[in-house]
Design a binder for these strands. Structure first.
Lengths: 337, 337
DNA sequence: CTGAAAGCGCTAACAG
DNA sequence: CTGTTAGCGCTTTCAG
């Protein structure tokens, strides 16, 4: 096994040519005669030659690889984004290296370092919840490696950005609730150090304000992004005694927790309390009653972010430093509201 | 921007040392005096030096990268597997390159070629539905690159294998149906050229046989792996007029299609027809009624497959050629049966 | 049209 | 302890 892999030199030796000649022939360089090319090509096939892209990358000082860092790969949203990224990368003959931060800032930083060491062509990141400083990302920029954030951005770093219109989506969703007649609308919010947490919360507050409900109706319970956080939030709300007539959760998993716990305590959705989420997880349409939510098209986000990154790789300086693409959301009204 | 990245030579020049000395100092080689090491290390930090792993790989003739090829990244099962792989790879300071075949054999072959060109340390594959020949995988073996199949294997290729006990899982599930009193059990099967399709079908047939039901009860409708296939299958069953009392679908998405279509035509689950799936998608517990299915622990599969691959990378010849690890499934009984 | 020489960044073997 | 030399596989430039 492992009979040293075939190189241009092996081919050259057998054909009594110089190895540079072989190299040119393989890349269809005009210098080389058709006859020689044919001989080289056929021997290459026969010997099962595979060009060594590591050597090529070393030579060109650039590898055809995109790095992607996400909090977690098993997560509807991120796996769909990665799928979109891979799709675009594949079309441009780029590889995709996938890393998960597990929401840990240190782990994210380590991944960033190894991506730099691997001299990836560019990096896509959705920032970990615990990341507060942009230092790790600045390192990328110092190395001249293009960076695009998607979904969760680090605001003090100059980079491309692909974000969903969290503010607008939340606002429209809350306005929908108001139009349905709900007046006492609570928000189960995400961590304050994440952009999506903040923006969705702003959308919520501004919708209330716009309809003159900010005095009485606003009520925010803060937590994380998981189903358990939704369960916990509802328990806290319930403990207070005064139930809102609608609850807008920062994302679908949290909404699911809220949803489950509401039924647990014997209330009916939406008669007693309406529930809405954000993100359109596949699960959400299967809940009973199915969840009203806001769709984000993660697969599209992946494609758009990858395309932006590739543009930046192709034209290192032509691109505006902080170009931001805002993906429009759309409201999905189901029976939970 | 892109001020050429810092190399050992830059550090050496500034310190008036030879660059090999710097290289050794950076790797904490015993040759080098503590004083020099300190000087080198501190300048490296200051200049923001990142070792070039491409050069290192070229030198060692081996890269710290694992390739993973799956049919589709957005898919509960595969994204969870990848997550497990990444977890183990991360612990061993390996990177994970993720590729999707979209169930296309050609695309799979192209990915295989670029992985070879990138001289990855090893490859993990769950074979595309349309792949019939093992030729692409043989190429890997010729290059001496370790290979491990997971979930969907290519039987005529010598490689490591991590599979779920599809046969046993299907068998136990069907026996469960029989114990519940169902006698007329149909199977909505997967493509016959996939190992999981075949094995689950065998489990079904053998369970019937064991209980003496093979004469009357067996009825197989063949299709793909998607929700639509389940819908189509149920329509065909329904068109025949004679409804079975239970339906075992090859996987959860197909079961979902069956489930939805049964309700569509006005029948009640499980009173009129029971439905069971395979794979325990997250969705399945949210159906109404929730789906009886078989759990496969995809995250564990990813970890186990990655560990096996790393063992093979570490000990190229010590490993048995076709070592197979069978992951036990467990039955999850819910209200659909 | 083909060949020679040099270099990408790093490491290993050996010499001083 | 530090430096020299050579080479991983490939491409680019320039000479023949």
């Amino acid at each position: 096994m492992a009979a040293r892999q075939v190189t241009v030199k092996d081919i050259a030796r057998k054909l009594r040519l110089h190895y540079t000649t072989v190299s040119k022939a393989l890349r269809d360089h005009p210098d080389i005669s058709p006859a020689t090319k044919r001989r080289v090509l056929s021997l290459a096939r026969e010997l099962d030659y595979h060009p060594n892209s590591i050597a090529k990358s070393l030579k060109n000082q650039a590898s055809s690889t995109l790095g992607v860092i996400v909090p977690s790969i098993k997560n509807d949203f991120f796996s769909a984004v990665i799928s979109g990224v891979e799709e675009i990368a594949y079309g441009r003959e780029f590889n995709t290296v996938v890393c998960q931060s597990n929401e840990s800032s240190e782990r994210e930083a380590i991944h960033l370092r190894t991506l730099i060491s691997n001299r990836v062509g560019g990096v896509l990141v959705s920032v970990a919840q615990t990341t507060t400083s942009g230092a790790g990302f600045q390192a990328l920029r110092r190395q001249g490696i293009p960076l695009v954030f998607f979904d969760r951005v680090c605001e003090d770093v100059e980079a491309g950005r692909v974000v969903v219109d969290d503010y607008g989506g939340a606002m429209r969703l809350v306005e929908h609730l108001i139009q349905r007649g709900y007046r006492n609308i609570a928000h189960v919010a995400g961590p304050e150090n994440t952009s999506i947490g903040r923006d969705r919360c702003r959308g919520y507050l501004d919708a209330l304000k716009k309809h003159g409900l900010n005095g009485t109706g606003a009520s925010i319970i803060r937590g994380g992004f998981e189903e358990e956080d939704g369960v916990a939030a509802l328990r806290r709300i319930h403990a207070r005694g005064r139930m809102p007539d609608a609850i807008f959760a920062v994302n679908d998993p949290v909404a699911r927790g809220v949803h489950a716990e509401i039924r647990q305590i014997g209330l009916e959705i939406p008669r007693d309390v309406a529930v809405a989420g954000f993100g359109d997880n596949r699960l959400s349409s299967y809940l009973d009653p199915p969840l009203t939510t806001v769709s984000q098209s993660p697969y599209e986000i992946g494609k758009i972010a990858a395309a932006m990154l590739l543009r930046r790789i192709d034209h290192p300086s032509h691109e505006p430093v902080c170009e931001t693409e805002v993906i429009q959301t759309h409201l999905i009204v189901r029976r939970s509201t």
